[in-house]
Design a binder for these strands. Structure first.
Length: 204
DNA sequence: TGCCTGATTGCCT
DNA sequence: GGCAATCAGGCAA
């Protein structure tokens, strides 16, 4: 992929909230055997470790959340509500734990493939929610621990910045569905972007 | 071992 | 706006 710059490993070795904010506007593409599908990240949430009671990592390391304690820049995928997967990017300073939940994407590549995976849904309904995003991209448990690679490798999960100028404003607010630590404004989204999840826009 | 809850979605009214 | 689907993790017994 021309015109895209890769992300250095150090990008993910910072405070989780900073990474969550900086991931907005970046491209996420899944290069699978079915084809490539992806778009621009428009909504994220940050989850820290021992200091964040809303985080999976709060109670210490388990088999499920092991990735959150591991090497930054890899995928943390979990299954929830019996039907859905959520895709996270592991990101935290050295010696800590944390991950950024990818909540919504503006579809740009492989739209037809994503529509098929989403059972005929299209447009905003494709990726405006963490479960929908995983479904559209074809991400499941087998992606657990997979590294995010430069887009130019065209393999697995690709992440990078577009050289194309993309103007946007960032807004933040409390995380969705979280009762604990609501005062922490750890959800970030691109202001006015129609692909942000509905719940996302409801709060301010 | 069993019960309860949840970082969700989609269908039904 | 309400609620069922459906299962892994956490916690009590």
């Amino acid at each position: 992929m021309k015109g895209f710059s890769s992300v250095p490993a150090s990008f993910f070795c910072r405070d989780t909230a900073e990474v969550a904010r900086d991931l907005l506007g970046m491209w996420l593409v899944n290069f699978s055997v079915e084809g490539c599908a992806g778009g621009i990240i428009v909504e994220t949430e940050a989850y820290r470790g021992a200091e964040d009671p809303a985080s999976h990592a709060y109670r210490g390391e388990t088999r499920r959340n092991r990735a959150m304690f591991g090497e930054p820049g890899k995928a943390y995928v979990y299954f929830i509500y019996g039907n859905h997967f959520c895709l996270n990017v592991v990101a935290h300073p050295p010696g800590k734990a944390g991950a950024v939940l990818l909540r919504a994407l503006e579809p740009r590549i492989g739209v037809e493939l994503m529509e098929n995976r989403r059972g005929g849904k299209s447009g905003k309904e494709l990726c405006n929610g963490p479960g929908k995003l995983c479904c559209a991209l074809g991400v499941d448990r087998s992606y657990y621990g997979m590294p995010f690679r430069p887009l130019c490798e065209r393999k697995g999960l690709g992440l990078g910045k577009s050289g194309h100028k993309y103007e946007y404003e960032i807004e933040c607010g409390p995380r969705i569905g979280i009762k604990l630590a609501r005062e922490a404004r750890l959800r970030f989204w691109i202001k006015g972007n129609p692909y942000v999840s509905k719940l996302g826009r409801a709060f301010r």
